[in-house]
Design a protein around this nucleic acid. Structure first.
Lengths: 327, 327
DNA sequence: CTGAAAGCGCTTACAG
DNA sequence: CTGAAAGCGCTTACAG
């Protein structure tokens, strides 16, 4: 049905070898021949068969990207960056969304691996114990989680979190709340610890709540608990939860930024648009995606043999949801 | 490197044919033989090579999904549903995001088509004139746009829009604003017209604004224009724009639902969480995705020859952002 | 029920 | 610079 290399060769009165070279390795062919081949292939509407090519060269040029939830605004920038970079390098990306079901992660990763040359796994939700099984699907690069002996791109929440706590301390807050993300989240543990150690250093008290799912609804729920306690400021695991907190506070007539301060994490588009605008920690998702692809391609072509974890920094973006502690 | 069918065959003392059948068409093989093959294949860690299979059977079992912007909350439910359905049918989906650049759409669709058996194109942004070129990439099913002679799943905003206008009329509003989405959006045209005709019927005046990009920022901008006019209620092209309007109104001290009424479209997660909660039009994105996959598979296996457009309905979800017109 | 053989559509050493 | 041939790893009529 579709026109093949052989059809073009026959029409051009040349061998398949020559047609193949003319199309994919032009230097190896006489200029006139090349032109002729290109013209005829064009006229015939020849489209190379990727599958056959893959079988011959031993790779698919497909890379897999596993994400916990594409509806979570943290991931689209990563996804877009991965796609853009992959595309620039002649690769196509296949995305699998595990819908925040950690139990499906390994199986989905295995399936994905079968069809692709390698994997980028963003924010893996699997327990530490089972992480090795994901690693075995090599080549794989992890984003947003440190995995022993594996390539990883780590977004270090530490700096941003420390800045956030310092910011609140400077505003006079003495007791701050932290709304935990999911237990399975490695970032959450990292954030908790950064908050804890900075708070200790500055003599602040941290009250913990959660764990919560990274959803607006969680924040709505958490807001009421928070108001029953003594914190005058709160840092949420992510912007979605922070936005939920603000929505509920507003609903209860409490002024965010005046009566209570709120900080999120992700610097998602909504954070600059909410009312009041949300103080948050900028996380370089796009950069992480780009770097992850480069790292994977390096693994694939053997340029990289012993991958070092790559660390990206975060920083606080101060907006209107934080203000001086009420007296 | 990887173990092949032939390796398993050699280890089992059988032919490749038998191993192949034992693994993919068990009924055609003696029970004892099958068990042996399955056991040995398991022990050897045999993973069938998809590429070789695809080349042989003439299909990739990959389907392409083209979306304007995965960061737009309208699309994740569609994407998830497409993936879920495709996966249930043994297909894998490759997503391409055109980042709201209509100019890239055709090219990306072509690339995607080369690697897949067929396409689902969500909310195509291409002009009517060039739509035929997308159709030619058959088999393709369009979601959220009616395309002559092509398979399509249409989300009919008409009902929901009519309900929205009736709702506002019942609340006493006489002048309503409509914030247009992008000119390239087919849905926008459909929504404009539905609003216009219902408003005519009920004797309301419609003031139009825009076009606006489907982003929160657009709503922030639009809010000020709106306040300078006479509308007491506004319907936005989508929830993002509506949320932006509300954020800006709140910022200016205007009470949404009391001083002015706001209606969005999409019923995205944020709409139920915003303050006040947003009256919006529910759009069956997930259902559209599922139906689109079924339709594409039907086209692929020849079950469907002359596709009829499939129409899905929308409905108004009343929340707190709409209220009686101020006197 | 099982096997030998052909074929899917490419790429690429190897000769000439 | 060009061509004949082998091979990538499967599936599937066709025989037996």
């Amino acid at each position: 049905m579709a026109v093949t290399l052989a059809d073009v060769a026959a029409a051009a009165g040349l061998s398949g070898s020559t047609v193949s070279r003319a199309l994919s390795d032009p230097d190896k062919v006489n200029a006139a021949t090349r032109e002729k081949v290109v013209r005829i292939a064009g006229e015939m509407g020849y489209v190379p068969n990727h599958t056959a090519r893959s079988l011959t060269i031993g790779r698919t040029d497909l890379i897999g990207l596993l994400v916990p939830d594409i509806a979570n605004p943290f991931f689209p920038p990563i996804i877009k960056a991965v796609q853009a970079r992959a595309s620039a390098k002649g690769r196509t990306v296949v995305i699998a969304d595990i819908d925040e079901r950690p139990g499906d992660e390994l199986e989905r990763a295995r399936q994905l691996r079968k069809r692709t040359d390698g994997l980028v796994i963003a924010s893996p939700r699997t327990t530490d114990a089972r992480l090795a099984e994901l690693s075995e699907l090599a080549p794989v690069v992890f984003v947003n989680r440190e995995v022993p002996d594996a390539a990883s791109v780590i977004i270090d929440s530490g700096d941003g979190m420390a800045q956030a706590v310092e910011h609140l301390a400077a505003l006079g807050h003495r007791v701050i709340g932290y709304l935990n993300g999911p237990r399975r989240s490695w970032s959450n543990e990292q954030r908790r610890q950064a908050i804890g150690s900075t708070a200790d250093r500055l003599g602040l008290t941290v009250l913990e709540y959660g764990p919560y799912e990274p959803q607006v609804q969680s924040g709505v729920h958490a807001a009421d608990l928070l108001l029953a306690g003594e914190a005058t400021a709160v840092i949420a695991y992510d912007d979605l939860i922070a936005l939920g907190v603000m929505a509920r506070l507003t609903e209860r007539g409490i002024r965010t930024g005046t009566d209570i301060s709120v900080i999120g994490v992700d610097d998602s588009p909504m954070s600059a648009m909410a009312y009041p605008t949300l103080t948050t920690i900028h996380v370089p998702g796009a950069e992480a995606g780009t770097v992850a692809v480069d790292s994977l391609l390096g693994l694939l072509d053997g340029t990289i043999e012993h991958p070092e974890p790559i660390r990206l920094e975060t920083r606080l973006v101060v907006r209107s949801s934080t203000g001086p502690a009420p007296r």
